[in-house]
Write a protein that binds this DNA or RNA. Sequence first.
DNA 1: ATTGCCTTCTGAAACGATTTAGCTTATCTT
DNA 2: AAGATAAGCTAAATCGTTTCAGAAGGCAAT
Lengths: 343, 343
Amino acid sequence: MPRKKVSIKEIASAAGVSSALVSMVLNGKAKQYGIGEEATQRVLRIAREMNYQPNIMARGLRSGKSHLIGLVVADIANPFFAKLAREIEKQASANGYTVIYGSSDDNSRRLNSFMQTLVNQGVDGIIAIPCEDTIKVAAELQEQKFPLVLVDRDYTDMEISSVLLDNEQAGRQITDYLIAGGYRHIAFVAYSGDLSHIHGRLVGYQKSMQAHGLTEKIYRFSKEESQVSIRSFLSAISLGDEKVDALIFANNTLTIEGLYMIREMRLRVPEDVALFGFDGGNAFDLFTPPVSYVRQPITEMGRQAFQLLMKQLEATEPQPAEKVVLQSSFVYTDSSKSRPGHK
Amino acid sequence: MPRKKVSIKEIASAAGVSSALVSMVLNGKAKQYGIGEEATQRVLRIAREMNYQPNIMARGLRSGKSHLIGLVVADIANPFFAKLAREIEKQASANGYTVIYGSSDDNSRRLNSFMQTLVNQGVDGIIAIPCEDTIKVAAELQEQKFPLVLVDRDYTDMEISSVLLDNEQAGRQITDYLIAGGYRHIAFVAYSGDLSHIHGRLVGYQKSMQAHGLTEKIYRFSKEESQVSIRSFLSAISLGDEKVDALIFANNTLTIEGLYMIREMRLRVPEDVALFGFDGGNAFDLFTPPVSYVRQPITEMGRQAFQLLMKQLEATEPQPAEKVVLQSSFVYTDSSKSRPGHK
DNA sequence: ATTGCCTTCTGAAACGATTTAGCTTATCTT
DNA sequence: AAGATAAGCTAAATCGTTTCAGAAGGCAAT
């Protein structure tokens, strides 16, 4: 890696040919342009000797492509997104793309401004975990046929390629499971807000409860006051003021918050309350007892998201939007085992 | 965001001036170049109306700067690195830089190739968590005066700017603490390999043990076989074959691995064995009992790392290397409370 | 009227790679 | 030998921005 980068021109003069020829050879288009065997080899050898590295900016300026893709997640410190990011990075790098990413904290202002930054940085496409008002930027980008793929959450009314979990099915299945285990007072706990994946999970829960003729108990806490809300909610349960024998936490950060409180209040799991969460993680496994959860096919989600993006990147004309829906698997542990005395 | 990006030339013709003037105005150099007030305002207005966004590639080609920085961490799915990454991203964005990052898995081949990719992508500087053989690339980059900052781990024999934890002090302090709590058979457990931060922690442990006339017990497991090794190690403890009453895990992933085994083998903490780890995290807190740990000043590390990089980026002549050493704080919980019956 | 000196602005080159159109040769055809 | 064809190569334009040298015009001093 010599300090001063070598340009195509220097190789050209070292090889005694024109810079056009060097460019052609180095792009593997020697045959196509009918470059002689001898010249081709000479250029290749010299380029190797001088350790030529193309100038990305120049190439990008000329071609209009940066080979950069943007990835916007809610929070990279959340293991779910971290794993997703790693998979996407892996796919990208295997396909000659580099990833720029950032966290939105599910704040639409931040998300919008970061998307804008990405576009300005000249990324060729974006993969994003949208939040409530992403819709605006997304719509604009979509309208311009800017390559865009949404993951994890959806806007059903828009034609944007997305990779999604079958959230309704997951919500339904775990609720069914708890009911089969003898639980009757199952509460669904989520942050407030209208994120589509949470909505799907909620609908699945509701359908299951209705199908079994049980009363729905839905609790939604604002992210800002979740600590306080969860605490008083759980203490109501512990005092018997809220008749709840099982909790479904709608996502992993909320589950973790819940676990802290449950431990603090010394609620017994599953005797006082059974638990089911989403996404898993070390904290789920190491809790006593381990927490049951819905496992999302993260690797597959990352792979698919990148595939969908690639399709748009490589295509010459605009591609129709595609929605991929994946199924989750389930990890059943003692936190949701059958009620003592049931069956 | 109109589809076709507007160029400076179009603004120029719309405003009836030359593109040079537009460039000057848009870069806030109107005064400096003595551009008239009227022309300045006209250009600004038109640029706003046409929603001008500079072409990063063209600017980068011309200036040789990309305003991109590279960040290489060991594993972005590790909360420690994720938090560090977020802080660096925050600093960068506040200073007009965008971050590209990737995970090396502490694999020097991957790290080297990613660093190379970053350089080829034209990043202006790199912040990296080095691993054992990073030294080669780092040395090359350093030699070329390429802006580089290392974090978390060090090569004392090289003049490279770094942000480090006072690992020896941390190792020493927690060992002292355990000894004061009545523990005498304290084992230090780490992955094999020669990473400087682990080394520092080990030295601190050793100094403390020696100062108290205790026998050092050092166990190092290869990452590949850690599951098996830890299992047999802990079972030896549980059977009394290994006389160990406290464990210091040298980093967070190893601690987590240990916790899984400890739970599986039903070792009582701290009755059978006391625990101390590094970095913390939800899993530490939610374990029963919560695990004591050394808390690194992650935010400060990120801030400092970016500062050091900025110094190099902004400077016109090469800057001398700077090493920043930070102190950690400690979270003492029941996993390391005084031995039953001690004092 | 010439000179010099501002002030305000422009032309053109440069960054490095890609690509199109077209220029030399050499060889083949008739 | 003249013309056609092909093979192998090059000049030059282009992408959008920045910057430097200097042009144009006005004005004052000589």
